[in-house]
């Protein structure tokens, strides 16, 4: 699964996360995200992660339609 697509889908829902690709020496789109709690409001963590989960599900669904293959 593309970490970058998840980060974009999350951004569209008002949730900022860093995509694994930003940390990859080759810029490869890793299936990874970095989540930091150093700036997030305590009260918005639950909602933020729920929206992130939505972004993950949306990305997965779209990826499986586009690629019609199971994604890791």
């Amino acid at each position: 699964m593309s970490g970058r697509r998840v980060a974009e889908a999350a951004a569209a829902r008002g949730v900022a996360v860093s995509a694994g690709a930003d940390f990859d020496p080759e810029g490869e789109d890793r299936g990874a995200l970095r989540l930091s709690v150093s700036r997030v409001e305590r009260e918005s963590i639950e909602r933020g992660v729920a929206l992130l989960a939505e972004a993950v599900r949306e990305t997965r669904a779209r990826a499986s339609v586009l690629e019609s293959a199971p994604v890791v």
Binding site: R4, A7, E8, A11, A12, R13, G14, V15, A16, V17, S18, A19, D22, R34, L35, S36, V37, R39, V40, E41, S44, I45, R47, G48, V49, L51, L52
Partner: peptide, 12 residues
């Protein structure tokens, strides 16, 4: 990371 287009709910 990608710019957040919606009102910011959580910044991780």
């Amino acid at each position: 990371p990608p710019p957040v287009s919606a009102p910011m709910i959580a910044d991780f």
